[in-house]
Design a protein around this nucleic acid. Structure first.
Lengths: 157, 157
DNA sequence: TATGAAATTTAGCCAAGGCTAACTCAAGGG
DNA sequence: CCCTTGAGTTAGCCTTGGCTAAATTTCATA
């Protein structure tokens, strides 16, 4: 009954160079995704801070927390990293503002966000779903893909 | 010189219900992304195990590690979680196989992956970039968006 | 102006998912 | 038949990004 020790499958598959290349490419792709994930939080925060400054004149941790769906201490902790990375300026117990570098990143993110949303809508996705999915998708859209999206949405005015 | 205690911006912004709703929706969207991230690893592993079983007859941790671009101990640790979640079957020091549930998830993932790649290509992205970006995008494509993608790629022969 | 409520931060916890070093096991060759 | 070698695992560490509870600070207002 117990044949679990018969090791099935082929062990002598000597991978051809082509397959090794493919494996390496795939590994790179996965590594990129993991890397992208590390900057996702930074992008989300910076994008949101820019929005809040535009609409409220300032970005308070409590508002960031509400918009992001996390608790204030989480915001404090993550903002500290943004400060370390030179994206954000802060004084204790005061609001948060973007540095020049932060503004540049926010602008790029918001542009990319708009293009992704527009593309999804152009493909027939309803705007609510488009907004929702874009939040996750945008961080994984390369520059090349963004160009393709942009051409697609503009070329059908 | 030190005017840092002047708190700039408007504090009396009483959020209208509409804005509160928008904030809650945005918080939900971010929460979804965080949630999606938790299942990304599971999806990547299951998808890859299915591929390896198809092509090699078995999925060895060392091959998974190579394809994923991580070290073998990482694979062991993550596979343990998949076992806990009933997606994978394993015996110590032997290859890894999918459970029925794992096969179902792998099939859904591979289908979604194909559709995302096809959509990107249809939008003018070169196939290499499409493959790369899809690896990150696929986890954030909702069912509604997937339907839209599918119609788009089929409706243009 | 004193005080209480709300905002912010600190401290300390947890799980996920990476890593290296070191150990265990399986299988083939001498 | 042992023993080397490579596959797999264990142990232990790190960072990220969540959380709660408990300070601390600010600000409005009584």
């Amino acid at each position: 009954m117990d044949n679990s020790h018969d090791r099935p499958g082929v062990r002598d598959v000597t991978l051809a160079p082509a397959d090794e290349r493919a494996a390496a490419d795939q590994a790179d792709a996965f590594a990129s995704v993991r890397n992208a994930h590390e900057s996702e939080v930074a992008e989300d925060y910076v994008e949101l801070i820019a929005e809040l400054v535009d609409s409220n004149g300032e970005a308070r941790p409590v508002d960031l927390a509400e918009r992001l769906g996390v608790k204030p201490p989480t915001v404090t902790k993550n903002i500290s990293r943004l400060v370390r990375n030179g994206l954000v300026r802060r004084e204790r117990y005061r609001s948060i503002f973007l540095t020049e570098k932060g503004v540049a990143l926010a602008d790029a993110c918001r542009r990319r966000h708009r293009i992704v949303v527009a593309t999804l809508i152009a493909l027939g996705v309803d705007s609510e779903t488009a907004e929702r999915d874009a939040e996750g998708i945008e961080h994984h859209v390369s520059d090349e893909t963004l160009v393709a999206f942009e051409q697609f949405v503009t070329s059908r005015g």
